[in-house]
Simulated scan of single mutants.
Amino acid sequence: MSARIVLATANQGKLREFRALLAGEELLRGLDLDSAVVDAATAGVGPIPETGVTFTQNSLLKARTVAEQTGLPAVADDSGLAVELLGGAPGILSARWAGAHAGDENNRRLLLEQLSDIAVEHRAAAFVCVASLVIPGADGVPAAEFTAEGRLEGTLLTQERGEQGFGYDPILQPVGETRSCAELSMAEKNAISHRGKAFAALAHRIVEVLA
C-alpha cells in the first residue's frame, strides 16, 4: 500500500470531499491522491467507538487511534448538525439521531417530524466540524497534534431537496443560498462547508506531510 496519510473514516463521501480539497493545493499537483490518501478500512483499522462528549474529543480520539495503529499521519473529523432550537442537538449524536443503526434518511425524517410545526424564523441550524491531524511518534505518543473548527450556518428546510452530498445535506439551506447543500456541486459545497473550512485550516500542515 502506497498510503501516506489516512483519513479516519469509513464514509466514502467524506473521503471524496477530502481528496477534492487536497487536489486544489499547488504543492500536491501530480500526486496520486487516490493512492496517497486512504480511508481507515483500507489501512486496516476497524470501527472506532466515539466515546467523547464533544466534537474535538471524538475527532482527536479517531485520529490518535488510526495514527497509532497504522504508524501513518492521520486526519479525522467529527461533525454534526447543531439546531439552535434544540440547544445544539443532534450535535455529536447526529449520525444516530434516529437510533444506533439508523441511516441518513431515518435521521433526516425524524428531525423534520420533530420540527414540523416550527416556523422558518426559528429553524436556524449549523453544520459544525472539528478536524484533527495527528503525527505519530515513538512509543504510541503523538509527535504533534493539530485541530481546527469550521461552521456552515443555515436554515433547516421543511422537506428534502437535492441528490448530492450525504447526511443532513438535503435539509440544510446555507445562509445566502436558495439551494440546499445537496443541490450544490462538490466544489461549491467544499468552498463553504464546515468540513471544508476545518480541513482548509489544517491544509498547510497536511500538505507538509504529503509534499
Rank of each mutant, 00 (worst) to 15 (best):
residue 194 H to V: 13
residue 18 F to G: 07
residue 31 L to Q: 11
residue 133 L to S: 01
residue 11 N to V: 11
residue 180 S to G: 09
residue 163 E to P: 00
residue 91 G to S: 05
residue 158 T to F: 10
residue 201 A to Q: 15
residue 107 N to F: 00
residue 96 R to E: 08
residue 158 T to I: 04
residue 26 E to A: 15
residue 104 D to F: 07
residue 210 L to F: 10
residue 174 P to S: 05
residue 74 A to R: 03
residue 146 F to H: 15
residue 159 Q to K: 14
residue 8 A to T: 13
residue 67 A to M: 10
residue 170 P to V: 08
residue 37 V to M: 05
residue 186 M to S: 12
residue 201 A to L: 14
residue 196 G to R: 03
residue 96 R to W: 05
residue 134 V to F: 09
residue 137 G to P: 05
residue 44 G to N: 02
residue 170 P to C: 07
residue 29 R to P: 05
residue 27 L to Y: 02
residue 209 V to R: 05
residue 149 E to Y: 09
residue 157 L to C: 12
residue 192 I to F: 13
residue 135 I to H: 10
residue 128 V to D: 00
residue 108 R to D: 09
residue 12 Q to C: 12
residue 18 F to I: 09
residue 86 L to C: 06
residue 2 S to P: 07
residue 101 H to M: 08
residue 187 A to L: 13
residue 134 V to E: 02
residue 111 L to V: 09
residue 154 G to L: 07
residue 78 D to C: 09
residue 55 F to N: 04
residue 132 S to M: 08
residue 136 P to I: 03
residue 73 P to C: 07
residue 92 I to W: 01
residue 126 A to V: 04
residue 18 F to V: 08
residue 61 L to N: 12
residue 20 A to I: 07
residue 181 C to L: 14
residue 75 V to F: 00
residue 115 L to V: 06
residue 10 A to G: 13
residue 35 S to F: 06
residue 200 A to Y: 07
